[in-house]
Design a protein around this nucleic acid. Sequence first.
DNA 1: CATGAATGAGCATTCATTCAT
DNA 2: AATGAATGAATGCTCATTCAT
Lengths: 214, 214, 214, 214
Amino acid sequence: MADTDLVELNDVEKTSGKLGKREQTKLANRESILNAAREVFAELGYGETTVRDIIRKTGLASGTFYNYFKSKEEVFEALMDEGMMRIRPRIRAERIRSRTFDEFIRNAYHAYFEYLAADMETFHIMRRNPNALRVRMDTPEIVAGFEEIREYIEEDIRNGILPAVDSEFLMAAVVGIAMEIGDRMLARAKPDPEQAAAFATTLVIQGYKALQPK
Amino acid sequence: MADTDLVELNDVEKTSGKLGKREQTKLANRESILNAAREVFAELGYGETTVRDIIRKTGLASGTFYNYFKSKEEVFEALMDEGMMRIRPRIRAERIRSRTFDEFIRNAYHAYFEYLAADMETFHIMRRNPNALRVRMDTPEIVAGFEEIREYIEEDIRNGILPAVDSEFLMAAVVGIAMEIGDRMLARAKPDPEQAAAFATTLVIQGYKALQPK
Amino acid sequence: MADTDLVELNDVEKTSGKLGKREQTKLANRESILNAAREVFAELGYGETTVRDIIRKTGLASGTFYNYFKSKEEVFEALMDEGMMRIRPRIRAERIRSRTFDEFIRNAYHAYFEYLAADMETFHIMRRNPNALRVRMDTPEIVAGFEEIREYIEEDIRNGILPAVDSEFLMAAVVGIAMEIGDRMLARAKPDPEQAAAFATTLVIQGYKALQPK
Amino acid sequence: MADTDLVELNDVEKTSGKLGKREQTKLANRESILNAAREVFAELGYGETTVRDIIRKTGLASGTFYNYFKSKEEVFEALMDEGMMRIRPRIRAERIRSRTFDEFIRNAYHAYFEYLAADMETFHIMRRNPNALRVRMDTPEIVAGFEEIREYIEEDIRNGILPAVDSEFLMAAVVGIAMEIGDRMLARAKPDPEQAAAFATTLVIQGYKALQPK
DNA sequence: CATGAATGAGCATTCATTCAT
DNA sequence: AATGAATGAATGCTCATTCAT
């Protein structure tokens, strides 16, 4: 069992800003389910994973699962959103503090590959499951994450910083490079986010400059 | 005399190159299962697909499936191999007739995106299913296809045509770009392989030139 | 206060020796499956019986079967063991209170045929199913039951009470007589254990005395 | 494959008493199926055996089976009858040439155990399959075989050679001893029919003499 | 709220049997 | 008569989900 460090916390202080026993347990259980799900999805892929696999790993009762999520699909989406919600703000921050597109690409790739190395599992799932139903994978959060990058590109095009290239394709290339290189990086004995970021950055920065306007 | 019974007639036909009715049906059924599988996998993803979904689509009896494939996995692999076996010779051919790396990249992307547009389904599956278990997806044929590209890169590095870059990462980038841009292209109302190939080619060709030797 | 919820009530009951409703149902279901299995095995034989036959007879849902037994084989063995576990202690008791081998044979046959008449079904199965795979039938409990008889024989040989006959064959004869006569007895309108026991006893007691030492 | 020495015999001579090619093949196939069935039943038991198992072993096509037998049950019965048809005449012969009941028992056990050692498989099946459905096992031939022994007993009772014992129980004992001792004999490294027969004979002969008239 | 047994729909697979060749 | 692919009913079993406790 993965996480049995749930429940059994301490006494109540409903007046303070702290959480009561009940609330704490609830959060702990929810987190426990998400952690178990992350591991199982990463191991088996979305389609092959069963709710049973997940609850078995939590040590909770089967019925308890349904107090937190309606279905396997719902946990999966929660997981995807969670991952994206962690990386998006970083990329957005990089966007803000970068003065050129080149700088943004460089900083964003750095942020991404470093995050990837630190939180491998979630991103493995994202990579390997784009599958099943892309539709489902297209969690609002995820679509938004991709679209955000595209918007940055279009913004820079409008500002004359980038040539008027096909922004969707450029975003696709940026993302595709991130994904495949990310996979290979994670497969290596000693993942080196720095190297991966440098590689991807160079490729994109040098590449886009020669692109023909649409 | 006429004691040459039907089975022997079939033998005769076999030597003459023609197929008996039985053999024809068998081939047709096999093809039918593969086609159904292609569609269902594309629609539901590998993990969500059931053998029943596949046979339901063929109209054959459930037992018949097992005369042709031992399991869902086996059909899937047959499909993957088939797809890869169609694209690989084209890419190899491009490699042979190309005199520079740049030319090879350009020609290979052309071949790939054109093929993609013509045989969308199989490649959709390849894109969306790398998932489940990457391991399973790693059909010998597929691994070989990727490795072949990597070998071309290393060959050119040895010949001084390319700087001594990380060949695995470059291959990953080439493949990642192909995949993501391919996906976006297929999602468009009027897929334009020519445009996709031009875009990807420019990106890679301009990009790799600036890469630092390892 | 009344926060002692129902589950804890069950715990309380457990310590008091009583069973909660849940536990009662579980026991009842298990018994129900065993009873159904006993009947079906008796009617169809092991090989011909399907798990579905068994659950159909219980009225439970198909999945419920698997909450109690992993397979048909497992119920079968539970049944065999149960039967043997009922008869063995009786035979052992007879052994203890008998002062001669003759007395033991007489008492044991009495106990056996009486038990047989009272619990026909299980022993019918034992008779008719030894078949299928004798191996499987060779539940530890059953092998032990037979071996126990053989050991009594060898003990008496060592003590000079019996001639040094082939103990395995004598055990086989004792068992074979019990089985076949038992079958015939059960097939009669009014099974008469007393008569069967007298018949078998006479045969064995008179017979073994003339056996040649090995 | 067990028996592929079928077919491909020689030319026709329908005029002679010999069998034509067709007839020979037919007999060979029938025999081949029976042999395969004997082996499979002996290995798996009746219930667990499938028609597929049998035909797989013959090397014939699945459809061919049905030219010879309507079902698994039919082959099984053919096999049982065959076995009984081989042993019955021997026992009947012994009956005829024996002048006393004792002599008959002795000779019959000899014949039986010797036959058993020589044709182990069929009798193993008979022993282990009494199971499935005793009804089905009660092939006319088999019932008749048992009844024949019983009739001999009753005849001797009528002639005052035997006390007026329960003839069914005595037959059951005779048969039970034969079966269980037969099993144990076959399980030994070097089956010794002579020893088994001597053992069984002594037991029965000495035993029945003390039986009380009904 | 947590629990975990009950449920029955659904799945993969095997089987006996048929029938076109 | 032999063949072996097609058939679909039947089997063992798993799963998501519910609900009494």
